[in-house]
Every structure is written in C-alpha cells, then in structure tokens.
Design a protein around this nucleic acid. Structure first.
Lengths: 311, 311
DNA sequence: CGCATCATTTTGTCCTGGACAATGTGTTAT
DNA sequence: ATAACACATTGTCCAGGACAAAATGATGCG
C-alpha cells in the first residue's frame, strides 16, 4: 500500500514525484515518448528509478523552469545539462552597483549557511539604511543574485530557504514595529493569486507601503479570485494589490487581473506588480502595473492627491 | 495544458486534489466503487466537482484522518459527518475551556474581517500570557476553531488568510525580539517536506523552541528531502524537526521520515510533529514524534540531560 | 477472559495506452 | 516589423484492470 524507500536500489514513482516535482503522469508520458527516464521494474512490474536518472530529472526540471522544453533536453547527458544551467545564469548583475561588495559578502553568508551572521548583517544594514532603501537596494537585488547562483548550483536549496526565512523575519519585525495601530489611507489589501507561492515579494511590497502611512492588510499568498473580490468589498479597501513572481505564467496573470478588474467595485483601484509582469505593460487598462518597487511611494502620493487626502 | 480555476462552477480533479489532499487516483476509484463523489463533466468529458461535494470530501478526509474508513462515511450526509467530527474531536474545544470566551470573540473578529482589532487583541494576550502559553492556549486552538468554522462555511477563505497573516506577523515579531544572537544548544533545523505548505505550524514550533534558549533555524516550508540531509550535515545541527499539517498524507510523511532518518547522520536526532502525525505514533523507530506542542520544552530538557548540557 | 493466528474484506496506489487542448514555433501575408 | 495562420510539442485527463498493505473479523489456545 505504501512504498517504503528502504531498497536503496531506486525510488518509486511516488518518491520521484516528491523529489523532482514532476507529476506521475508526466514521468510516464516522458518514458513512453522519449524513452527517458527508463526505470527498472520490481517484482510487481512497478517502476524503480535509479538515483542517476532522478538526478538528471532534477536538472531537466530546472532547465524547464527556465523556459527550455523537454524534447531538447532529454537526450543530453548530465554534464551538458549542468553546463547549460551555468550559462543560463547569464547576467553578472551586480559587481558594478554601489552595494555590490556588500551583496557579495551577504551571498557568501547565505552560501555557507551562516544564519546568525546573515541576520546580524541584514539587521545592521536595515538600521543604517531605513526600511525602504533596504528593500530596494539589498533585499530585492540579493533575491535576484541568489536565484542566479542557485541556477548555477553555486548555492543550494536550503541556503535559499535560509535567506528567505531570515529576510521574512527581519521584514516582518520591521513592519510590525511601524504598523501598530496604523489607520491611514489608502487602505490596501495585499495578496497573490492561487497558484502563486512567493510570499517574500508580498512582504517587500508591504515593507514599501507601510512606512508611507498606508493601512496595509495582507492576506498572504494564494487567495482565490472571487474571495479577493468579496474581501475587497467587505473591508472597504481603497486599493487591491497583487504580486507575481517571475515563475508565474504571464497569460494567467493577465486573464486573472482582467477578470478581477471586472468584478471589483470601480471605486477600488487595482495595482499589480512583480517580476511576472515585466513585459505586460499596457495590456491592462484600468490596472496600475508596477515594474519595480521604487514606484510605490510615488503611486501612493498620486492616489492621495487624486482622493484629496493629506498623509 | 494546465487548469485555470477561473470557472467558478466547480473544480477540476487537480484542484480537488490540492484542496482535499486526496490523490486523483483515489478520487476516481471512490467514484467507481462507491458512486461518490459524482462530479459533473465538462465539454471534454473531464470531471467538474461542485463545491458541496468538495466540502463533503473534506469532512470525510478529516474523519479518515481520525481512523474512520471511507465505506462507512461515504453515504452519510454532511450534517451527520459534521456531528461525527464534533463528537470525535472529543474536547468540546471552546465553551468549557478556560479561554473559551476569549477564543469566541477572536473568532468573531476573524469572521468580520477586523485586522486591526484582531491584531491588537492577540498582541495584548501575548503580552499578558507569554509566548509559549499564548501559542498553546490561543493560537493553536484558534487555528482548529477557524478550520472547523471554515468547513461549516461560517468564515470564508480571506478571513482565514487574514488570521494566518496576523498571527505570523505577531509570532515572528515575538521570536525576532527574543532570538537576537541566540547561540544555545541544541541547534535545531526546522522545516517541512516539499508538498507541505503550512508555514504557521512551523512558526508555532519555532515559538515554542526559541524561549527555551535553543538555536533555532527555520528553512521555511517545502525543502526537498536530500537538501534537508545536506543542510543538517553542513550546519552541525543537533536536531532536525519536521512539521506536518493535518492535510499531509500520512503515508508520505511516514515514507519520507523513514528515508530521512536513514540518510541523516545517526548523531542528529529527528523530531516530527503536527496534526498530520496524530495516528502515526510508534511506527517510526529512531524518530521522536510529538502529538502536541506542550511536549516540546520537556523534550528539549531531555535532550540536554542526555547530552550533558546545562541551559 | 486476554491474546495470538489466520482468512477475508477493504482500500490506496500503480499500470497501460488513448485522447485532447493549451502552449510554443515556424511560415507566410500584410 | 507585425499579424495571422498552420503545425509540433507537451502536460493532464480518462477508463478500467490489477495487486499488496492494512483493517476487520473469526477462531483456537493458554
């Protein structure tokens, strides 16, 4: 009934699904179409995946997340796949920027799993810079750097998680301190669509909004569309803000935003942003699209001017 | 290719799998054998589950988690199922308990979407009670209450999200204040398995551990198994702690924990807990299973005694 | 009466192979 | 260069059969 993974010879299809994130159906259909993976079979005729094949599947999955397609990848050997991942990392990003060196040293702390030093370092920068510049110049670029480094295999998953958790802790603390009894306008409802899991992006937005004196309420990630509507109407919010990570399918974002705009009371503004909307600039009438965090404070002032409200 | 959840008429089989934790195969085989669920079909012949059936599936799943078996449940109507849950839950939860009235009033704040009042109320209780009792007597029971209320349709999804977010903020702030430069022993690595998304459970554990003076590092949710191993080894942790929500398939939890135990250095203890493991007491040799949050401080002392370390 | 052993039912997961729509890619016409 | 179209790729769904693990019930024994 269940599949004990004890026979170290290989993994069951359920275990591979768990480890690679590829659905059982997908694993079977790849085998049928491409001849890979080619698992052995146990006495019952059930698939038994050797570890090397699972490793290769993991590499392929990463490349697919980057936009590659399975047919081009499936016949390559692991070395070639690894090389592709490294190249794809691409942009040397920061070295030039003002905080470049700082970012590099933080990245090293992440890579070497130093939670305390990382937190102390971040905390210190936050104190020195203030919340908004900290988010714009440190947290956001570091997210990008770590994402690239992860693609290249330079940092591993736990390191990335570690960073995310430490930053979440720090941002929440900073927001918590500032927002006690905030009751300003605009009142902003903040969340993501159901398939979107990137909580950190949401938190960065909240960190940009709170110091502006807005009344910012986050529902966290993955709120169903119609629930966003009902919550917005029930809570008398001025603005609904939705965040999309780069992994979010652009098509879904656009469809969802249009449908949301249609169902939302016209008096409620709809703001959307995040790496997932980079290219979707003007296709969204009636919706304010942000391509970077910097624009948020100005947009708040804009709203206040239009509404005739002084901060 | 993928299934956008936009048509509000009903849910796809994949969406129901997500919402109920019942595998697609299980949903199909129940339909074949018992005649329930009996989803409609769309133009392509694909299953479309009405909301009421999904609600009933959720009830059934909860009862199965309690040890019941599907055949006895599947023909009962939702009211009967709800009654069974209430009886089986044993503890009449609120009315009798010391904090019953308090919980009820907080539940009302959640239901009516009052983020500020909710936060103030929680914050006040935290100050008064201290972190650990606050988690045990307020946060955890309120989670259960809200879960039940949500099943009954008494609170909606945004309300639940609102509660989760407010509590996350408060707990993180409390933990952040206490944990600056904590370097005690045991050093605990905290995370969940890849399919598990319940961040709040993790945070409650962290809130129980931090005041004990442990060095508690959270990787957040959804860390792949082998990454947990490598992180545990690299970071010189004493304990790896994994949390499971009630929605997590018990079999997956057991498989995963066994495999984790086998691959972890023997000197590293493995702790597991959460509603998802209620029934899985003794099947896990070499793993410490927690059925409630209360046991955590004692277990930490236990560990220190065994290791010959004074707090 | 408690407890171990065995037979029977229940139940979840895996299998095969077919189908199809959403998405991506390449080509041609404006 | 952009738009419109045809063609290829790809993930998810479906049906219905099979089987072993777990739960349940029956039986015998100390």
């Amino acid at each position: 009934m269940n599949t004990p993974d004890i026979p170290m010879a290989g993994l069951s299809i359920a275990a591979v699904e768990r480890d690679t994130g590829l659905a059982k159906d997908t694993l079977r259909v790849w085998e049928r179409r491409y001849g890979f993976p080619a698992p052995a079979r146990d006495g019952r005729g059930e698939r038994v995946y050797p570890a090397e094949q699972v490793d290769k599947l993991r590499l392929i999955r990463r490349l697919i997340d980057q936009g590659m397609r399975p047919a081009r990848l499936i016949d390559l050997d692991p070395d070639a796949l690894t090389r592709m991942l490294e190249e794809l990392g691409g942009a040397p990003a920061s070295a030039a920027s003002e905080h470049g060196a700082r970012l590099e040293s933080l990245l090293e702390l992440v890579r070497l799993h130093q939670p305390e030093a990382l937190r102390d370092g971040l905390q210190q920068l936050l104190m020195k810079m203030g919340l908004q510049p900290f988010v714009i110049d440190i947290v956001a670029p570091l997210c990008t750097r770590i994402g690239e480094a992860w693609l290249r295999g330079y940092v591993d998953v736990p390191a990335e998680h570690l960073y995310t958790e430490q930053v979440k802790g720090i941002l929440r603390t900073a927001i918590g301190v500032r927002s006690t009894a905030a009751r300003g306008r605009p009142a902003v409802l903040l969340t993501t669509f159901p398939e979107e899991q990137h909580a950190l992006g949401l938190l960065m937005v909240e960190a940009m909004l709170t110091p502006e004196g807005t009344c910012c309420v986050s529902l966290g990630v993955q709120t169903p569309l119609d629930d966003i509507c009902s919550a917005a109407a029930a809570g008398h919010y001025d603005i609904v803000a939705v965040s999309f990570s780069s992994a979010y399918p652009l098509r879904h974002a656009i469809d969802g935003l249009r449908s949301l705009r249609a169902n939302l009371p016209p008096t409620v503004e709809l703001w959307a942003g995040g790496a997932g909307l980079r290219t979707a600039g003007r296709k969204l009438p009636g919706i304010q699209v942000f391509t970077s965090l910097e624009g948020i404070p100005a947009a708040v002032n804009e709203w206040r001017k239009a509404a005739g409200i002084q901060p």
